[in-house]
Design a protein around this nucleic acid. Structure first.
Length: 792
RNA sequence: GCCCAGGUGGUGGAAUCGGCAGACACAAGGGACUUAAAAUCCCUCGCCUUUACAGGCAUGCGGGUUCAACUCCCGCCCUGGGCACCA
């Protein structure tokens, strides 16, 4: 795979990623083979291979031709350590998701994918897929749909109009000022002469404030008056226009109407600058806006803003459902227009890196931006010495004339290639399609193979990809569906999230200035990289559990564990130690237990094998079974059922626990040093146990499978069938309680009538003792479960 | 601040359409086997009182509903994750 971690590693070691990728791939392959992961290695793909990224570029051009890829200059998230731009989704708590450095804003020309155009479909289609609620919720919130209205305000004394976006147009009557983002395009025009200096200064300050601080909602609000006034369209009043950095440029129109009585942010701002607070909804007669301590977003009744004919809403409740009719009313009057907004931003795909698929665009001074024609794909990475990032915001490719200089495909004149590459998430947004037809040189995959293999039935990945890979892949799939290239709209029908391995990792407190830490910081811990650790004072190191990752240098390699305990033990341990989706604090305690369990099964099977009868199934019908035989078969068939359903539910830990119980039962049925009672039941048990073990410990299972004389792998055999009759219990345990407290247990046949159970309970010695001298108020019989005697 | 998930023995975890709390393991202690160790096998193992029999208390804390609450309701506390001035 073409990924940034590999590039960082290559830079660190002063090596060329081109050489390292095959080594890394071989390493992964060895590990996977060692632990017995079954992949079809004929389908292995490598996204850094031009044969692969040719198609990434091809899809880029598809998006480009559909107007879904564009270049724009905007302040982007810039990681000073990785020396490249980052997508919104790659910034976590103001930091680079990969290296934790504080991101900066830099205005740079960058390529974007118009994922926002698919916001609605990305949201609604979540309903049709079987994913965890957590991931769906994260995507929903990331897309951030809101319904509201755009309202036009005229600027007094100019011809200008400013449109604001609001989800609460019903509070227009309480708008006492307007706020523009400092970057709003009209700021300069509307600012009056007397306010110009102050405004210029404020804008400058806002630009230099880092994003981390600016986004901090706890910070006290600041702003500056422009000197201009807007006209409130519902009542013709003049309201002052301010600028403040609590209004964001990228969302809505970058301008808001401020209703301090009903919005907390506006309230704080109004209080600070002494602006009017006017109620639209009143909670009580004596509510006084000058004495309010906080805004009241919901609750109260609408004030009187006109006669019944002019204003039909007097007295309505301040609740969400009141908003829609007012939007309709306002839009009939031409004051507002219904509008839907999303928090989702376009996906920034440019990276200023050597190692990535080059963006297949040519810049021609005559023709402008020109797509590289399909027959000239792939645009390959040049083989170079210097692939380090420049840090100037320009890709290292820009310094290579042989790469940059080319001819325009349209006019044939001299032209320059785009030097940005695509982030790794471009390549991973479609790789699952390539697996269907990995070596196809003519298409990204043939229709026939796509129809056969896709969409993906079961996909497993970490939650950390919730709003990155998993969102991007859905987007690309929908674009390709619209082009008729695939016949499904969602790439992954079912998604299960596995937990991560956590390692006990050294770190440190953030330094105030350098890391953006300090009192109010959301970041309170930073990983000490292995190379930093050596000369860091021991008593200042703060240890924590952190996700294992190459970059943190805290990984435990599976190879080592395999060498010491065997692949089967490692697999059993990892599945048994915690539920699939839970994170696991890595420790070696317990892996020995897994080893012991695998050995225990092995020993039991080995001593049972001499008695094995391949034809047990036929003999079973004619043979008489002892109580002991029946009990064992009951446990066996209950286990087959339980393990089967647990596997389907991804409950591997309890599946293994059930198998352990079965093995314990097997030892009771036939301790290793004794002769068997019934070779037929023993044979069934043996064969079944081998098969039940196979998903967890395939190597041991296959070996045992061949030792009972079977050909081929257990993986080519069917799961044992449940004998429902054998699995049925013929006895049940009834709990006997007095006032809800356990007194005794009763074992009866499953067909015992409730009346009889009640009788038996009341005749029970322990019960008689417990209720002696008290009056029985009530006797509750829960069928097949318990009897509770209520006494006073 | 908001949203989501969770809080159960020394440890990992089981059990939630309300019905035996602690399955299955790990660790620990004791015993058997062994020249010894490893491996294996057996026993003990939530806390407190008690020689024992037995009893009491226990699923983050405080209330509530119920014959019965780890499970449902209300109010807190804590941990992890996500979002973070989105108007």
């Amino acid at each position: 795979m073409m990924n940034t971690a590999d590039l960082i590693e290559a830079i660190k070691r002063g090596r060329n990623p081109r050489e390292m990728v095959p080594e890394y791939a071989a390493n992964y392959r060895n590990t996977l083979q060692k632990i017995g992961a079954t992949y079809d290695w004929d389908r292995e793909i490598n996204s850094s291979d031009p044969g692969y990224y040719k198609w990434t570029q091809w899809i880029f051009l598809l998006l480009y031709k559909k107007g879904l890829a564009y270049r724009a200059t905007a302040p982007i998230n810039w990681c000073p350590s990785c020396k490249t731009g980052l997508a919104n989704e790659e910034v976590k708590e103001g930091r680079c998701w990969r290296c934790d450095s504080l991101v900066e804003k830099r205005p740079l020309p960058q390529w974007y994918f118009k994922i926002t155009e698919y916001a609605e479909r990305l949201l609604t289609d979540l309903a049709d897929i079987d994913w965890s609620d957590g991931v769906k919720q994260m995507q929903r919130e990331w897309i951030g749909r809101s319904e509201g209205a755009g309202v036009d305000f005229k600027v007094q004394g100019t011809g200008e109009t400013i449109t604001v976006y609001t989800t609460r147009p019903d509070t227009l009557w309480g708008a006492t000022f307007m706020v523009l983002a400092p970057e709003h395009p009209l700021v300069d025009q509307i600012t009056t002469a007397s306010q110009r200096d102050a405004i210029t200064q404020y804008v400058k300050k806002a630009q230099s404030t880092n994003d981390m601080d600016r986004m901090n909602a706890e910070r006290t609000k600041t702003g500056e008056f422009t000197g201009a006034y807007a006209i409130n369209p519902v009542n013709g009043e003049n309201i002052p226009i301010w600028i403040a950095d609590y209004v964001l440029t990228g969302y809505g129109t970058g301008a808001i109407m401020a209703v301090p009585a009903h919005d907390q942010r506006d309230f704080e701002f109004a209080r600070k600058y002494g602006i009017d607070i006017r109620l639209v909804y009143r909670i009580s007669e004596d509510q006084d806006s000058s004495r309010m301590v906080e805004a009241v977003p919901l609750g109260g009744k609408m004030e009187d803003f006109g006669t019944a004919e002019e204003f039909p809403f007097t007295g309505i409740e301040n609740e969400k459902s009141s908003i829609a009719p007012i939007i309709d009313w306002l839009s009939n009057k031409g004051i507002a227009t219904k509008k839907i907004q999303y928090k989702l931003r376009d996906w920034l795909i440019s990276r200023q890196r050597y190692w990535g698929a080059p963006i297949p665009i040519i810049h021609c001074s005559k023709c402008g931006e020109v797509a590289v024609p399909d027959d000239q794909l792939p645009v390959t990475l040049p083989d170079v010495q210097n692939y380090q990032p420049s840090g100037t915001g320009e890709s290292p490719l820009a310094t290579i004339p042989e790469f940059v200089n080319t001819t325009c495909p349209q006019c044939g004149g001299a032209a320059k290639r785009e030097t940005d590459t695509m982030g790794g998430f471009a390549c991973s947004s479609w790789y699952f399609l390539r697996f269907a037809d990995p070596n196809n040189a003519d298409e990204f995959a043939s229709q026939k193979s796509l129809n056969y293999w896709l969409p993906v039935d079961m996909y497993s990945g970490g939650v950390e990809h919730a709003v990155m890979h998993l969102l991007y892949a859905r987007f690309w799939t929908k674009v390709m569906f619209d082009e008729g290239l695939v016949n499904f709209t969602e790439p992954f029908k079912t998604l299960r999230n596995q937990g991560s391995m956590l390692a006990w990792t050294p770190g440190r407190k953030p330094k105030h200035d350098a890391d953006g830490g300090g009192e109010d910081s959301v970041v309170d811990w930073i990983v000490l990289k292995p190379e930093e650790r050596a000369d860091y004072p021991e008593d200042e190191i703060v240890w924590r559990w952190a996700r294992m990752s190459k970059s943190k240098g805290n990984v435990v390699t599976p190879e080592d564990m395999c060498d010491r305990f065997g692949a089967d033990s490692l697999r059993v341990y990892e599945l048994f130690v915690a539920p699939f989706e839970d994170n696991v604090q890595w420790s070696e305690d317990g892996i020995n237990g897994a080893y012991r369990f695998v050995s225990r099964i092995w020993r039991w099977c080995i001593t049972a094998i001499p008695q094995y009868q391949p034809g047990w199934k036929q003999s079973l019908a004619d043979s008489k079974l002892s109580d002991k035989d029946q009990k064992t078969r009951r446990k066996l068939h209950q286990s087959i059922r339980k393990i089967g359903t647990d596997l389907e539910d991804f409950k591997f830990n309890t599946a293994i626990a059930s198998l352990m119980e079965l093995v314990n039962e097997a030892y009771i049925y036939r301790p290793v040093e004794e002769q068997p009672d019934n070779a037929i039941v023993l044979s069934e048990l043996l064969e079944s146990i081998i098969l039940l073990l196979a998903p967890f410990a395939p190597h041991v299972s296959d070996e045992l499978w061949s030792r009972i004389g079977k050909a081929g792998s257990t993986y080519h055999t069917v799961w044992p069938t449940i004998d429902a009759a054998a699995a049925t219990e013929n006895e049940m345990v009834i709990i006997l309680q007095v006032n809800g407290k356990l007194k005794d247990k009763l074992t009866v046949s499953t067909d015992t009538a409730n009346d009889l159970i009640k009788e038996l309970a009341l005749a029970n010695e322990k019960i008689i003792e417990a209720i002696e001298g008290k009056s029985v108020k009530n006797v509750i019989v829960v069928p097949k479960k318990l009897v509770n005697i209520v006494v006073a």
